[in-house]
Write a protein that binds this DNA or RNA. Structure first.
Lengths: 216, 216, 216, 216
DNA sequence: TATGAATGAGATTTCATTCAT
DNA sequence: CATGAATGAAATCTCATTCAT
């Protein structure tokens, strides 16, 4: 006879409650620290901020790349959720885009840029899956707005995600209270550019995420 | 009997030709490498790329901060030059803004973001002077375009410079041939936002560079 | 249910036994190596002699100055102990001085000279406290001997400590078995000078440790 | 037909006047800097203090050891001169010892200790010759004083030279105006110990310079 | 399991020595 | 000859990762 908990996770030994809490705290601390201080903070700093010993971090993640991987995946997932919620809850199709953009900024999607620079496995299935899900969710937002004539038809999903990520990328040395306000200002300006009817014809080439792969 | 050269500058020996060439090569290599691989490349890598020994680098720049300082100052100066040239040579006031924005991207103004994160003296007179000159030159561009009704009046110099820097910031891991093309696309989108008559009222607060100072 | 030990000190984990042992071994090795080879030995050499990796040394002492600080403090403390023991255990007051002088030599008090030349914080509270305690202990020895008419009244504590330190200062290049014997010979000669009734009047100025502070 | 100058130094090309002056300035600067800042100052610092380029230093001395060698030899020679002059000019035999001791201190004989630690050839003929001449000169002083019953008979030349060197050794970190006064105070105390009739029998073993040779 | 400690590999910086002007 | 510049080797210090309690 087995308990309900054992039934839900039958393949691995049931993780202890404090272990799960530690794991969560480490990922959260890492996200914050990466945003604040950049990608090259010592892992000891992250462990300290999470309130755990450094070896505990290694129990949960095999190496630095593993931790970065987890943070990236979690940021993508949270951003994805925002995209889906915006699509579901906003009546106007361009308002949905707007809401997503600002929400993604608050989820620190910009930190992804920084972390892509680290040497971790960018072809890991988790990442591919996450990107695909995010692409799909954003594509939904974009297509709806474009079909409704609310967004320029030459703007691609990749344009949106790239520009968004870059504009919200943290400036590790610069911590001041109204930095966020600037970011949202700039996003609004960008969105105004997206909304405007096309004046100058952009090179409307088909843009995909693959286009950004490093050339080997 | 002495030659004219000896008579004219007897006390301060002119710097040697090869030393000047080396200094130039180091700064150039550093600019390239910082853009390619981020702010935390080993100095040995820069020295190697410049074709000099690592100690030569230290003869010219007292430490890493000194080198970053030099690169930052040089990028600012080159960008400034582009602003002044655009103002002088373009007939249309918004075309001047456009030309400056794309030229600044090519001068790697985005690398400034990355380098501002490094720990070097951000209050050095050289930097202050450079920023002031750049601010003035860009203010000239912006005010002309706004007076002519070609640019939204709620866009500030700081908006322009910050968004421009962020959008052109290098993605150290990602080197591919058409990354630049994406950047210029996004700049065009942003400029379209700048050009459009104001639709949503932006919070028109007076924005200055001081606003980005870290809070002490 | 918790054990008594866990109950008594629950908040500050006691330092690990092996860490304490390592710390002790590093300080001991440093004291030896500084005496043997001078103040500018590589820290790697000290770590090797202590049988630990170099980074272990840096875990215990933040930098070279930190290690030198610790060695200086420990030598002062050990010397101090010798002074107090000599005062307590010797019947004759000048014998106590003699015993202290030779014991201080064996504690390598001379190494202090060498280490004072290194660039570490000479105004650290630990050092100030140590010096004061040592001064007090030696002053006790000196005053007793002088009150008993066993020591020249114009010899000050600072004279004793300085001359003692200089005469016992290690000669880093010179390691031979009877170097110590020479040192003790010279100390005896000096003590004979101290014991003799004053013949030539020395400039009896009040001498304090402050007199040796570098002029700013 | 040759000039007188060429006749006097026929084997090597006659050194130019400015070269000689430079050589002298380098040795003087080195002596000062070694006393002030210890044995491990950069050669560039010495060159700067001498007002010459670093390469000029290397033109005169093949390497750092060569420079140290020259300084050591020169200090020994100057000290030797003081010994001979004291012997010649002082009426009282112990006054001659006293005068020599204080003069040697002023010639920075203590710096020899520091430099013996550097890795230079301690068996070079120049050094051996210098030491022998110095030993002879000081032996003359000592024997006269002992024959006249003015100095304890158990004090050897080596005792005198070693104690003198140690007591006058510079403390590189400590530069203050009356440091010299302390040194001379201590020398006086030591001399008083030398002058006193022997009270405690010292271990009168024959002491020679050879006794200090490092054990191989 | 969680932790503080230990470690070697690598980055920054210095300096004795050589080179080119 | 004299010099500023260049250089590699070595020293200091950091950090991702492993070990032992």
């Amino acid at each position: 006879m087995t308990t309900a908990a054992e039934t839900e996770a039958p393949r691995a030994a049931r993780p202890r409650a404090d272990a799960l809490r530690n794991r969560e705290r480490i990922v959260t601390a890492a996200r914050e620290v990466f945003v604040e201080s950049g990608n090259d903070v010592p892992l000891d700093e992250i462990a300290r901020r999470a309130g755990v010993g450094n070896a505990t971090l290694y129990r949960h993640f095999p190496d630095r790349a593993g931790l970065v991987h987890e943070v990236v995946v979690s940021v993508i997932a949270r951003t994805c959720e925002q995209a889906e919620r915006a699509a579901a809850e906003e009546a106007d199709s361009f308002d949905a885009v707007r809401r997503f953009v600002h929400a993604a900024a608050d989820e620190r999607i910009g930190a992804l840029c920084m972390m892509l620079s680290g040497d971790f496995d960018k072809d890991h299935p988790d990442l591919t899956a996450g990107r695909e899900r995010l692409d799909a969710a954003v594509l939904d937002l974009v297509e709806r707005a474009q079909s409704a004539g609310r967004m320029r038809s030459d703007v691609t999903v990749l344009d949106l995600l790239l520009a968004l990520s870059q504009l919200t990328r943290p400036l590790p040395g610069i911590q001041c209270l109204n930095a966020d306000r600037f970011v949202h200002r700039h996003l609004q300006l960008l969105l105004d550019g997206f909304e405007a009817p096309a004046r100058s014809e952009l090179p409307g080439e088909a843009a995909t995420l693959e286009a950004l792969r490093p050339t080997p």
